[in-house]
Design a protein around this nucleic acid. Structure first.
Lengths: 197, 197
DNA sequence: TGTACATCAGTGAACGCGCGTTCACTGATGTAC
DNA sequence: TGTACATCAGTGAACGCGCGTTCACTGATGTAC
């Protein structure tokens, strides 16, 4: 009897990560119900059947993909922030978040803006996972914010991030380009004034 | 040959309105894809086939229902505002919007918070219709806001409404009740300080 | 070094269900005469 | 006042499609000996 029959290679892990990465973009771009497993796998030159070798369900993938999206966004923040002059980090963060570019590219942007209104409708297990990722995100981003105590900074961060995501979503909703611009601009000015020392 | 064969009664109009009203609640509560025509009609003791005597498509209904939702919300505002002491209208509006009650009842609440992130994915025709309703809403609500010119007030209104809807959506997303409370409270304090003279 | 073989990621057909939309129909309404 | 009949809101079976999930399979990997 064999007891030590090892599985081959770590390639599985890699495939799994490719799926999550692709899903993260697709979900943000098209919403939870706009993404079909077969399509998603097809984009990676895989067939849909294999999906269940990696995930229990589409919902599980959704939760992981959203969590991953927060990390993505933070990476984008970090990139922008190092280019900022000292003291101007927060301003850069706000300007980037409320940019036309972010507005036009939901699939690589903030998952809160892209998916927020559908998340509350997912089952608790999914939401708990997303919740954790979000708190983590909040905690990390709050380091850039003003506030005497950590609690203060986190409260500010909550308000800033939710406010900006609301403004971005609103901008994406309106059909008129000019209106979109002016929403973004008004929000930029407001949040910079409110939060940048 | 008869030329003047009138249709019977105005009852059709009434049915149509009942459908829009029910849809307005259902869509807010479950999202665009969470509502099935047959279900919706069933709730009104009608069968699904008749739906197409009133609407071209589900999307058309969605657009109308969302537009209707804005009116609903305004009616709720108006009700709260008359109870406020003079000068305190805006504060009441903010407190009501960011209340636990609004948070717990998306189906009778703000469509922006309930549906915002899926609207951008609808075809242009739908968005244009929703857009018009939203501008109308904005214009009317902006009368309660501070600001020297009408443009100023509208800009403020844009920022306030989008910000609050972001905060409300975030509160609905988190799984933990205490966190939900503290999001709402932080946002309430912030927006009251920022906008109430 | 070579051969048998267990494992398991990935394949693709099939299942089953939900649901938007169509369509032939029914029966109540109310006008024409 | 009564009767024939056109209209059309509402019915419910049927169609067709998309899609999540399952399952028997294949073939490459790499271990055992």
């Amino acid at each position: 009897m064999r007891i030590d029959m090892r599985y081959p290679a770590h390639q599985k892990q890699e495939t799994r990560e490719r799926i999550v990465r692709a899903a993260s973009r697709h979900f943000r771009g098209r919403g939870g119900e706009g993404v079909a497993i077969a399509d998603l796998m097809g984009k990676l030159n895989l067939t849909h059947g294999g999906f269940y070798k990696h995930f229990d369900s589409k919902e599980q993938l959704f939760a992981e993909a959203v969590a991953k999206s927060f990390e993505d966004v933070r990476a984008g923040f970090a990139e922008a922030v190092v280019k900022a002059q000292p003291g101007g980090e927060l301003r850069v963060l706000i300007e980037q978040y409320l940019s036309l570019e972010h507005c036009a590219n939901p699939d690589s942007g903030c998952p809160l803006a892209a998916l927020a209104s559908e998340i509350p409708r997912y089952p608790r297990a999914v939401r708990v996972k997303i919740d954790r990722a979000m708190r983590d995100h909040l905690k990390k981003v709050s380091e850039c914010l003003p506030g005497a105590t950590e609690k203060d900074r986190q409260r500010n961060c909550l308000v800033l991030l939710s406010g900006m995501s609301g403004a971005l979503t609103l901008a994406r909703t309106v059909a008129d380009k000019e209106m979109r611009q002016s929403i973004l601009q008004a929000a930029r000015e407001f949040y910079i004034k409110a939060f940048c020392p």
